[in-house]
Design a protein around this nucleic acid. Structure first.
Length: 728
DNA sequence: AGTGGGACGCTTTTT
DNA sequence: GCGTCCCACT
């Protein structure tokens, strides 16, 4: 019965066996965090301290949830049933469904994806007669999401929260957006936690039910939790205080979407007497890799203090390589060649990854690998359910399941094209508004009262009768058959069959896959939740392929060989991160670098290029400051532009925050000295008040090379090209 | 109603 | 260099 404990080191064992009371596990990269979490879970069950249904285990990603489920099952020797194990959002949805009426919804509410959220918000803004050119819907979406991340409902907003957005109308728009969601019987991602937390706060009886149920709470990636997630956890854990949070402040890389590392400190405060266990023995990487990672992260201030030590690993290993290259093409060639070399030496491609700062960077490597015939996969590109054909099919299912889903109805009413155009749609909206009914109901009225004629009339009648028929069928024939019939009879699959574009066959295959996946679920609503919260791309996972992904997507993974290209100022650290969050932004970028290095077991190849192609034109780049923070004796520098570092150091910056002006000899200079194209007739002077389409009004604080530093009234300080602004 | 051209704006990360 | 949006044309 103690078998599962045998392979743990003393700290891990303490983290597993300390069952009573609050426990914080600070787990460095590669220190066996997942093992601790899963073993602890199994330990709770095996010692009979709780039934599976009495443990709440929360992860951040679906991948992590799946992995935990599998590993717990293997420790138990049987599949674990009835677990409350999943992502914050999935568990939030599960609880919210049971008490939906408390939030003004019904149990069958739909979960909107980000696309729907944005469309809805845009509609709300247009209804409020806001110029959506001037005030960008995505900007407002971000504001609302941050509020939701912090557990702020419209009613909880204080005066201090008012922003300049839309002249202070954001709270009003927020309330209107939430109203619209309620009318549509829909929740966005943020609502899944916001509503549940609000319910737990308002209803002590409901809270008590869950507090009784969940005897133990386990939280993974605790450093990534936002405030509302923290409040949610605290409410649920308050009674028994058996909460165990596992996290690593050095791997906190999601502050931009509301995560607050401070939750770790708050934990000690809110749960006095919490035990803290540090896991510092790394079993993943070779000593030089660990040394490089440790030296880098040591440049961050305000860490909780944790030192990664080799836990008996290979102490001799290969030193991380830092390669300087002429340009981004050469960088892509280098990575390609090395990968071929590794392959030739018998290394597994699946154990090789190229990790980049931003998604668009994968493209160059893709092209190179295609040329070389090296199989690869891009992790975390378009999600399965983000593909057009999947979203369309889902929209059909949503209308089938819930006729009041206006967003879904609008999406498919003229798809495939049935001649129901703008006119007909406008008439429907009119009726819907006048009678306060959903669009699909308005469509019935419209068809019945002859508001449309001819082709449109026939088409609309056909569609509405179709839905009626499919709904009846759903009761008798079951959801799989009904959905398949619906997609055929509506003409949707035919649309792709007739499509001659090269993607069409793939789309049809995706649709077949969707219907196949449907069979795994007993009910249609269960499936819809799965699709919006869980479903991922699973394309040939087993094949031996190189992985291309962002650093964010790589967290939690490990590979023998890791390529880290693009270590240049502006790219990594990312310029926007610096502009928007200053020193804090830089530290988060550094943590991202730390995450990248610690993904590697045996081999790290960092690279930077002196010239990078960005869109159409070439741009000179400066090596990333992170390169200077690596321990000289533990890395191997080489490459044609190795001298670039000296230049960076010797050239003074033109103004605070500006890239240093780079000059001097060699062919590098030719590119670096290329004058920026004369941007506009007369320069905009410092101190001028200007207007920018996206950021609004602001004052120019610095100007150079056609670029302006502007402090915007609401968007903060940014650097923009001067052709994007007009004197106000 | 649907299609095509042109202008424009934007390039971070995602449950 | 791309996708999106708008408008004008068929």
């Amino acid at each position: 019965m103690t078998d599962h404990l045998a392979r743990l080191n003393p700290e891990q064992r303490e983290a597993v066996e300390t069952l009573d009371g609050p426990l914080l596990v600070l787990a460095g990269a590669g220190t066996g965090k997942t093992r601790v979490l899963t073993t602890r879970f199994a330990h709770i069950l095996l010692t009979g301290r709780a039934f599976p249904s009495q443990v709440l285990a929360v992860t951040f990603t679906n991948k992590a949830a799946r992995e935990m489920r599998e590993r717990v099952a293997s420790l138990l020797g049987r599949p674990a049933e009835g677990l409350w194990l999943g992502t914050f959002h999935a568990l939030g949805a599960r609880i919210l469904r049971r008490h939906a009426e408390q939030a003004g919804l019904t149990a069958s509410f739909n979960i909107l994806d980000s696309d729907d959220q944005l469309r809805l918000l845009k509609q709300v803004m247009e209804a409020a007669r806001l110029d959506t050119k001037r005030w960008a819907p995505p900007a407002l979406m971000a504001i609302l999401q941050r509020w939701k991340d912090r557990g702020l409902t419209p009613a909880r907003l204080t005066a201090a929260e008012v922003t300049d957005f839309a002249n202070g109308r954001a709270p009003e728009l927020y309330a209107a957006y939430q109203d619209r969601l309620r009318t549509l019987n829909a929740a966005d991602f943020g609502d899944l936690l916001l509503h549940t937390t609000e319910i737990l706060r308002a209803r002590p009886d409901i809270l008590a039910e869950y507090q009784r149920r969940f005897r133990f709470i386990l939280v993974d990636e605790y450093q990534d939790t936002n405030l509302v997630q923290y409040l949610w956890l605290r409410l649920l854990a308050q009674a028994h205080r058996n909460i165990c949070c596992v996290g690593d402040d050095d791997q906190s890389i999601y502050s931009w979407r509301g995560a607050e590392v401070e939750n770790i400190l708050r934990f000690e405060h809110d749960f006095p007497g919490a035990r803290i266990v540090r896991l510092e023995r790394n079993y993943r990487s070779t000593a030089p890799i660990l040394a490089a990672a440790a030296a880098l992260i040591a440049h961050n201030e305000g860490r909780l203090g944790k030192t990664l030590r080799p836990g008996g690993n290979d102490l001799t290993g290969e030193k991380p390589a830092v390669l300087a290259l002429w340009d981004s093409d050469e960088e892509a060639r280098m990575v390609g060649e090395r990968i071929e070399g590794l392959r030739g030496a018998g290394e597994s491609l699946a154990e090789t990854a190229v990790l980049v700062r931003a998604g668009f960077q994968t493209r160059a490597f893709e092209e190179r690998l295609i040329t070389l015939g090296v199989p690869y996969r891009v992790v975390g590109g378009l999600r399965f359910y983000e593909r057009a054909e999947i979203r369309d099919a889902i929209a059909y299912m949503r209308v089938l399941h819930q006729p009041a889903d206006d967003l879904a109805f609008e999406r498919i009413v003229n798809l495939p094209r049935r001649g129901i155009g703008e006119q007909a749609l406008r008439a429907m909206h009119q009726i819907a508004r006048d009678r306060a009914v959903p669009l699909s109901a308005a469509a019935l009225v419209l068809a019945a009262e002859g508001g449309v004629r001819g082709r449109a009339r026939t088409a609309l009648d056909g569609l509405l009768q179709g839905f009626q028929r499919w709904r009846e069928r759903l009761g008798t024939a079951g959801h799989v058959e009904t959905v398949a019939a619906m997609l055929d009879e509506s003409g949707y699959t035919a649309m792709w069959r007739e499509d001659k574009s090269p993607e069409a066959p793939g789309r049809l295959e995706n649709l077949r896959e969707l219907v196949r996946a449907l069979a795994d679920f007993d009910t249609l609503p269960g499936f819809l939740d799965h699709v919006s919260l869980v479903m991922e791309n699973e394309e040939n996972g087993g094949a031996d392929r190189v992985s291309l992904m962002t650093l964010h997507a790589a967290k939690g993974l490990e590979f023998d060989t890791v390529f880290l290209p693009g270590w240049e100022e502006g790219v990594f650290p990312n310029q926007r991160a610096l502009d928007e969050n200053g020193a804090k932004g830089l530290e988060e970028e550094r943590r991202l670098a730390y995450v990248g290095i610690t993904r590697a077991r045996r081999r790290v190849i960092i690279s930077h290029a002196a010239n990078r192609r960005i869109y159409a034109n070439w741009q000179a780049s400066i090596p990333s400051r992170f390169l200077d923070e690596l321990p000289e004796e533990q890395i191997l520098r080489s490459g044609s532009a190795a001298l670039a570092r000296d230049r960076l150091v010797s050239a003074p910056a033109a103004f605070p925050g500006a890239f240093p002006v780079l000059a001097r000899r060699t062919r590098v200079v030719e590119v670096w000295e290329q004058p920026a194209r004369p941007p506009r007739e007369e320069a905009i002077a410092v101190g001028t008040r200007v207007f920018h389409q996206k950021f609004g009004y602001g004052i120019v604080t610095a100007a150079s090379d056609g670029k302006l530093d502007i402090t915007f009234d609401k968007a903060g300080s940014k650097r923009v090209l001067d052709r994007f602004v007009e004197p106000a």
